[in-house]
Simulated assay, not measured.
Amino acid sequence: MAAPMSDSRKALENMEPAVLPGGAAPYGNFPDYSRFHPPEGRLRLLPSALLSRLFPEQREGPLLGLDVGCNSGELSTALYRHLLGLQESRSCPQGSMAGMDLRLLCCDIDSELIERAKQRSPFPDSISYITLNIMDPNTREPLLRSYLDTFGRSAFDLCFCMSVTMWIHLNHGDRGLVTFLSCLASKCTYLLVEPQPWKCYRAAARRLRKLGRNDFDHFRSLTINGDMVENITKILTNDCAMELVCCFGSTSWDRSILLFKSSRPNTCGN
């Protein structure tokens, strides 16, 4: 049974909408998001040798990762360090995990958060940040294809989707969620997903109401609801030709981290 939430933790969660510019942040684009859900809460669940386990064979060129909904880049940088076994004091990837080279393309819908990520990045040669509405195929496809073409690749090795699915679901409905997951599944070999539980949907809608704003367009019509870990697993395994490899456990804020693997050749369609 999970430990009861501390008073300080409750206070942080309760004050979040009030102290963050933009109020409810309808796309999840909270400034200073990492103050409330620090990267360490996720990294402690991921094996430090995850990359070498997933990609044990030597290969030409770097491993390519796509981080969708990267916010201002704190988690992207932390994931990069963790996966390559870099210490916090190191800003150079030389001598990293088994000599592996990892390149990350990180995207977010909020251009201000992306600019902040670019300014703060300690790895500008290895981590790229772009403003992108991942649900717009007219901009998504050329941008992702251009990045992959740079490395002579047709797909990413690993995709990160950390606490993004709810915002896609609320803003684009059931069909949008399925389309989003299908898109990611078609563009990577491995997909690491951290779905928000249904209670987070209710909390997001409640924040909008408290601010006197209109409700999310799709919230009351969502038929994919309840156990979101189960729902997203079903979509990815039944509709997207992926298999569940591992559940790494849950964060202290009650979100599971799931790893899926593609069971078909990657395609980069819409």
Rank of each mutant, 00 (worst) to 15 (best):
F260L: 03
L104V: 15
C200K: 05
Q196H: 15
S250A: 06
K261N: 13
Y80N: 04
P122L: 03
G249K: 06
F219K: 10
G176N: 07
N214I: 09
S163C: 09
Q196K: 13
P93G: 01
C70H: 05
R220H: 14
A203S: 13
S186M: 06
S34M: 09
L83I: 05
A241N: 02
L63S: 07
D67T: 10
L236R: 03
G173I: 02
F216E: 09
T237Y: 06
A185R: 01
M15C: 12
R59W: 04
T233G: 11
C246K: 10
Q119Y: 05
G61S: 01
A155P: 00
D136L: 00
P38G: 13
N238D: 15
I257D: 08
S52E: 13
K187Y: 14
W167Q: 01
G22N: 07
D110T: 13
A117P: 08
Q119P: 01
C268H: 12
D7T: 15
L86V: 01
F36D: 08
G23M: 01
P21K: 10
E16Q: 13
P38Q: 13
L177R: 02
F260C: 01
S48T: 03
C70G: 07
S262F: 00
A204D: 11
R140L: 03
L132N: 12
L143R: 06
E16M: 14
S128W: 15
F260Y: 04
L191P: 00
N29M: 08
G152K: 00
A185K: 00
E141Y: 05
I134F: 06
M97A: 12
L20I: 15
A49P: 09
E194S: 14
G73I: 00
P265N: 05
D239W: 06
L132R: 07
C247K: 12
R120S: 08
N225G: 05
S72I: 00
L222N: 08
K187S: 10
F123T: 01
S262G: 01
P4C: 10
L75H: 11
R59H: 03
C240I: 00
A3K: 15
C240D: 00
P17R: 06
A204R: 04
P142I: 01
G85I: 04
P31Q: 02
I257H: 06
E112N: 12
F216W: 11
I109N: 02
D108W: 06
D157C: 02
A203Y: 13
I114M: 00
T165W: 02
E115I: 03
C268S: 14
H82F: 04
N133I: 03
A24N: 09
S252L: 07
S121G: 04
A25I: 09
G176S: 05
I127Q: 02
R145G: 06
S34W: 12
E115K: 06
G269V: 08
D108Q: 11
L170F: 05
E60H: 08
P56F: 10
A24K: 14
C200F: 13
V164A: 01
C92A: 04
D110M: 10
P62I: 02
E243S: 13
S182P: 00
C107E: 05
S91W: 03
I134E: 07
L84V: 02
L148Y: 02
E112F: 14
T77A: 06
R120T: 07
E243M: 10
F30H: 09
D174V: 00
I235P: 02
T131N: 07
G95N: 00
R42L: 15
D110S: 15
T189M: 15
L184M: 03
